[in-house]
Design a protein around this nucleic acid. Sequence first.
RNA 1: GUGGUUGUAGUUCAGUUGGUUAGAACAUCUGAUUGUGGUUCAGAGGGUCGUGGGUUCGAGUCCCAUCUUCCACCCCA
Length: 454
Amino acid sequence: MANLPSIPKGTRDFSPEVSAKRNYIFDTIKYVFKRFAYRQLETPAMENLSTLTGKYGEEGDKLLFKILNSGNFLKKVSDKELCERNTAKLAHLVAEKGLRYDLTVPFARYIVQHQNEITFPFKRFQIQPVWRADRPQKGRYREFYQCDADIIGSNSLINELEIVQMIDEIFTKLNLKVTVKINNRKLLAGIAERIGFPEKFTEMTVAIDKLDKIGLKKVYEELIQAGISEDAVNLLEPILNIGGSFDDQMQCIEKFLGETESGITGIQEIHKLFDYISLFRFNNNIQLDLTLARGLNYYTGAIFEVVSDEVQIGSICGGGRYDDLTGVFGLKEMSGVGISFGADRIYDVLENLNRFPKDVISNVKLMFVNFGEKEEKYCLPVLQKLRNAGINAEIYSDSVKMKKQMKYANSNNIPYVALAGETEISENKFTLKNMQNGTQKLVSANEMINILSE
RNA sequence: GUGGUUGUAGUUCAGUUGGUUAGAACAUCUGAUUGUGGUUCAGAGGGUCGUGGGUUCGAGUCCCAUCUUCCACCCCA
């Protein structure tokens, strides 16, 4: 075979086996989202570039996939501009559309565009691929799926509670043990204020967010490099080394924050949320983590992150509250809170622990062997009957050598094969072969249905 | 975007200081076995050695470029 075709860098094919496993994850997440009254939204793969640019910072803009205008895409470009070779400037002239970078910005765009048709608060979930022109590496792709649920137009902390409940329920259903870490950006703002560097809030959160990964020393270095004085960084120590029970942590942070304004509301919010949480029993650990920061800087209130207790892989789910997501599109004062599940990482964890249910993979129960025209006519009505009874079944479509047909059933993990030749037809029966243990017996069509329905 | 790394059959990999016709295992197909797969045996097909240049009498092997793979950083799911 000459040159095999291939797919672009950082993209993947999902084989039937892998697809089945991925659907198991998506279906579980979807089922829980729906039960909490979130409704599905789908938006186009491509957005106007003006919708996307400037929303993810300078880095993000570079990672946007841009779509070349159709037809004569050089129409708007002058010879002079072409010669200047200023790619940033040229990009806007030759491309008006781009592939979506996440699901949050298209969601915000949708809300603003349809604000008069939407009854708030609005709850939506969205499971679609997103694209980033990043350099691929372990667990990072140029095309990957996000599973988001957001509620917008409500300040109630009940929404935060429900997000924690959804996380707990989804990972329970997936048979995974996780820890849900919760913090509040207002506490972090209070901390920045207290150490005398409120304007360094973003830098501070980005650095603290790396604590798990790079350790205390490097975080200090990064904070100092960001322009925060050494004295101020030293003040942070009790916070970064904090531990103990919820009450211990709260006592410590309350004392530390004192009268800072955002600190007080942050503490109130945390108390209220954990008050709600204490009303329920959860299967997973729920804990306050004052060092949790999350890099994304549109979060303003509660923030969540979920890590597996069983496999070290980084966060498999994250989210938080944002106060002004739609502001950039001209709709002010819309507070929302959302959560995003990383399907690819959850897949890796399940695969790693061998936790995919066995029946996810093969769902074809039976194959009829094809002996020829007369036999086909005998089998086809029974095949139809099986399908009507809810059994996934098929007939080998060509009357080829039996060995080939058996091999097909075997390599597709089909557990039963039905054979009907002259003898069986004369008795109005089938030979039903169990492919796992090799046994076979003569049964009627109805007996076959009963056996396969078990 | 920065630094490193990888590429030989469908897949995983051998291939000596540069030297005849580039190998193995698994997979595929055919037969042993015309109504029995997963085991066994015999055989077959499958390669412009990622691509394009260069050095050389001669390149899978050396040099350059480019693409790809994987990894780290930046950033992020």
